[in-house]
Design a protein around this nucleic acid. Sequence first.
RNA 1: GGCGGGGUAGCUCAGUUGGUUAGAGCAACGGUCUCAUAAUCCGUAGGUCGGCGGUUCGAAUCCGCCCCCCGCUACCA
Length: 523
Amino acid sequence: MPDLKKTFYVTTPIYYVNDIPHIGHAYSTVGADALARFKRMDGYDVFFLTGTDEHGQKIAKTAADEGLEPKQLADRVVERFKEAWAKLGITYDRFIRTTDEDHRKAAQAFFKKVMDAGFIYKADYEGWYCLPDEKFLLDSEVIDGPGGTKTCPDCGRKVERIKEENYFFKMSAFQKQLEKHLEDNPDFLQPASRKNELVNNFIKPGLADVSITRSTVKWGIPAPVPESTVIYVWFDALVNYLTALGWPDGENYKKFWPADVHIIGKDILRFHTTIWPTALMAAGIPLPKKVFGTGYINKDGKKMSKSLGNTVDPFELAATYSPDAVRYYLLREIAFGLDGNYTDDAFQLRFNGDLANDLGNLVSRSLTMLEKYFEGMVPKPGPQGELENQLAAIAKSYASKARTAMEHLEFHTTLIQAWELVKRANKYIEETSPWKVAKEGYGGKEKLATILFSLMEALRVTALSIAPFLPFTASAIWSQLGYSDDIHSHSLKETEEWGKIPVGQKIAKGQPLFPRIEKENKK
RNA sequence: GGCGGGGUAGCUCAGUUGGUUAGAGCAACGGUCUCAUAAUCCGUAGGUCGGCGGUUCGAAUCCGCCCCCCGCUACCA
């Protein structure tokens, strides 16, 4: 029987193994994970792909510098990525490596398919070449030397003008088609502000054909041509999105392609909105629905760099505080798609304000009262009053608002929506003052039961709401509420079903979820 | 240089197709409660909406000029 469940395919960039995982990688990956988790909870069959890009001259050189084979270097760095993602609770379905056997086959098949379609031709590639470094340089990279010569930006030595016979992809043939696609699909490229950059700088001036083989590079996938040459890394790397689904005839390919969204960094937006769509057109494969470019994260307003020594290690932060604190900061503080900023102060403010004071303390005070007044058993509530109705209304309105925001990958907006209930619940406690009800007895035990039941409901809905973003915290709240199953197998719909927590369920208060960061502990 | 984005309270930002005294969160200040992680909750203060000029009954919102910041500018990934 065909599976009628809606599907959702989300990808991260495949990260270049020249560098170990840093906050930029964490940012796009955490975003993709939150989206994947959200869609799963909203009833979609999700395929979430991440992985590494391992070919190219740079890797070969880095490996050689360390006395390693390229694959050895990659193996080592890949472990770092896998550990990092495990720490942050990333729920990918596959971790693809461009050195994987099925990817080698897919990349070659893709190349062949485009060639058979008549969009690959042989021609001379001419450019600057640095002999000692064995690398091609762009016109914009070479530096003017004495006497009209050009020199290498890395080693400072003289570069030469050389020609190499390469295979070219006839990207120019798809200019009109690409323009039309961008026009007909305004959501294809997001954020929209980047669209003008692309159209004005690349498409309007005319798409140039791009050379897609490298005979000087050895570390890569052999091109399916008579000559000994490897596929240019981009024409190799992008295909990973297909490989992972078993293209051309895997079940997952039929099920999940075209991708719903490629989440990438803004630095590679260009490749994803020129080479990738046109190559797919050439191969006769449907285009992904959306390409979303994220921004960079700065530290104290300045670009992070190792030489400046101002990098932020998200995995260290996760170890010091909690993985969810890092996820929360990345998703809440920074509007996905814009450049963001990290400061220790902002991190602490988010942590203490939103996580400790608002959320953690709400859980703490609510569960304490339930233990105190009802021996930790969820009581049978009395009739709902106006205040309870207001609380329930906010809870019920979350799902649809969240869906809208998540369509545009507005994680920070979604989290603000989830916090509406947290804030309202804290206020509800002040308004109803359950400790007074308990002490002075007005309204009776039934009134107290209504209040505590409502609070448990607010916590239940909150746990479900934050589950895609703060998965560890959601699980913790869930089990403290007395549930023994996995919250992550529950659905978004349940946030709309007020009154669902079982009467009589025994809660189990735990340690504070987010112990406040005190000033003196501030790093 | 070309193209694009932006300059709104101390900070980070919202402000729909121009319309009543320009909003939120945080920070600051004052107060309240005691269930709670000295948390919560209530209140106060704070802005010539980059500058100048124009259109309009009326502009943060439209037009022009100027100042400042930022992004992109093709085959390194």
